[in-house]
């Protein structure tokens, strides 16, 4: 199976996972935000799938670019431009490559992280998706030599741990920051969705 097919498989599994967890994500966002994170991502991934249908991308980078454009164009909110930037930077980092190594995948994840931090100006422990994405990127880098599947497996584990650890934090970025101390005691919805996306990617590659 080509890297392009694998990439498309990853994206489809991400979309499926978002749909499955739409309510959960929205409920997390209701607790410390405005209750739309699940709806937002669902709208974005639906648009991404439609765009992939109609555009038939030729490379993994083109597929990721289509996802990015769907996120930026259809999601809105904070997560739209942030995930949009993440997929855009991942796409750029892959360039025209047709066969992706573990190193390529890890580099793309690191690029995604840098894009998100640049756009959103969040740091670790601000209780945002960065708390899942940054450990995921580090784990990905460490596992880079073991192939794409291992990279995603490591990233998913690290992202899940990072997401869980947002629970006690007081938010300093995003809508949850308006709650001050009342934001503690809830997992950040964006960190949770980042963990779900990496788990979906990992699952998609294991299955092949």
């Amino acid at each position: 199976m080509s890297s392009l097919e694998k990439t498309l498989g990853v994206i489809r599994e991400m979309a499926r996972t978002v749909e499955e967890n739409r309510k959960t994500l929205t409920q997390l966002d209701s607790a410390i935000g405005d209750g739309d994170h699940g709806t937002n991502l669902s709208r974005g991934f639906k648009a991404a799938l439609e765009s992939l249908e109609s555009s038939s991308p030729g490379t993994p980078a083109e597929a990721l670019k289509a996802v990015s454009m769907a996120m930026i164009g259809k999601v809105g909110g904070a997560s739209g431009p942030l995930y949009g930037t993440a997929f855009l930077r991942a796409s750029s980092s892959l360039g025209g490559k047709e066969d992706l190594s573990g190193e390529d995948v890890a580099a793309a994840i690191v690029a995604a992280l840098e894009g998100v931090k640049q756009r959103g100006k969040a740091e670790l422990e601000d209780k945002t998706m960065v708390d899942a994405l940054e450990p995921a990127a580090e784990a990905a880098r460490s596992a880079a030599g073991e192939g794409a599947a291992a990279v995603f497996r490591a990233a998913a584990e690290a992202a899940r741990k990072g997401a869980d650890e947002t629970e006690p934090l007081v938010a300093r970025r995003g809508r949850a920051s308006y709650l001050g101390p009342r934001s503690a005691g809830h997992v950040d919805p964006g960190a949770a969705s980042t963990a779900l996306l990496f788990e979906a990617a990992s699952r998609a590659l294991e299955e092949n």
Binding site: D34, I72, G73, G76
Partner: peptide
């Protein structure tokens, strides 16, 4: 006009 309670998009 964005979706309900959701910022509109750059497009």
């Amino acid at each position: 006009a964005g979706s309900v309670f959701t910022s509109p998009t750059p497009d």
